[in-house]
Design a protein around this nucleic acid. Sequence first.
DNA 1: GATAATCTTTACGTAAACGTCAAATTGATC
DNA 2: GATCAATTTGACGTTTACGTAAAGATTATC
Lengths: 145, 145
Amino acid sequence: MSATAALRIGEVAQRVGVTPRTIRYYEELGLLGSGSEREKGSHRTYAETDIARLQELIRLRDLLGLTLEELVELAEAEEARAALRDRWEEDPSDEERLRIVEEAIPHVERQLSLVRGRQATLEEFAAELEAKLERLRRRRREPAR
Amino acid sequence: MSATAALRIGEVAQRVGVTPRTIRYYEELGLLGSGSEREKGSHRTYAETDIARLQELIRLRDLLGLTLEELVELAEAEEARAALRDRWEEDPSDEERLRIVEEAIPHVERQLSLVRGRQATLEEFAAELEAKLERLRRRRREPAR
DNA sequence: GATAATCTTTACGTAAACGTCAAATTGATC
DNA sequence: GATCAATTTGACGTTTACGTAAAGATTATC
């Protein structure tokens, strides 16, 4: 995993507003990068980038209502990218950096389009509610229909 | 119930995209107007206004991620309104119409504010994603950081 | 290096939101 | 008024997304 602070599961959980159990569960589903390698039985460690990633997942879950299964699909696409990002810290040759960035872009674009789509749907809904409101207000002014 | 066509549960389910079981479950939770009165054992009947109502619930569930329990709260506020609306069809004196409309307005306003709130949150998320995208694109242009 | 706090693994439990099955009933149609 | 599809009620089953409890191991701290 990236070489930042090295947080443990409890603090990560607190900071993103979930329980440790949730984090382990997500790892079990393959949503988190399988924690690199880790001696069986030793404590899990996380870096800031892992927190960012987890928060992203939580938001996709909460704001778009994606199921964990759907998140797994999304994440699988990102797996390759995460693997590359690991090597970023080690030996980031310019050429490799470019490849990493170029892989990341369509992934973020995909997320963005999901968000934009949901926004559009919500806008439709809002418009209908506005129309309804206006009808009601008109009726209030002129009771004779 | 209002005096429109008189649909049965199967068709209602098809039209809103759920199963009959879901409709019965929602009724059990008190989300649907308890089907007015209905001889025990006889088929449930629905009118167009019931379909509209159910679709509203489904959208609140899907788009805002409200739990059925939260929907019940929202619906309870609407119950009084629904009761009034029943009398709309029978004997809608102008005075009563006015009261009904005035009860309906804050309810729709409440829904609208929920939708607007969610839109705002999504806009934040979208903005972050846009920023991320731009950072990535800049790095693609100038690989040296 | 002992102690305490936190963590790991394993396993069973649970709430929400329905699915599914069965047997009896209803309502539409001929 | 018989038939046949759709419905009702009741009950138990299922999936998702974790909760919870227990027993032992790890890591930080003194």
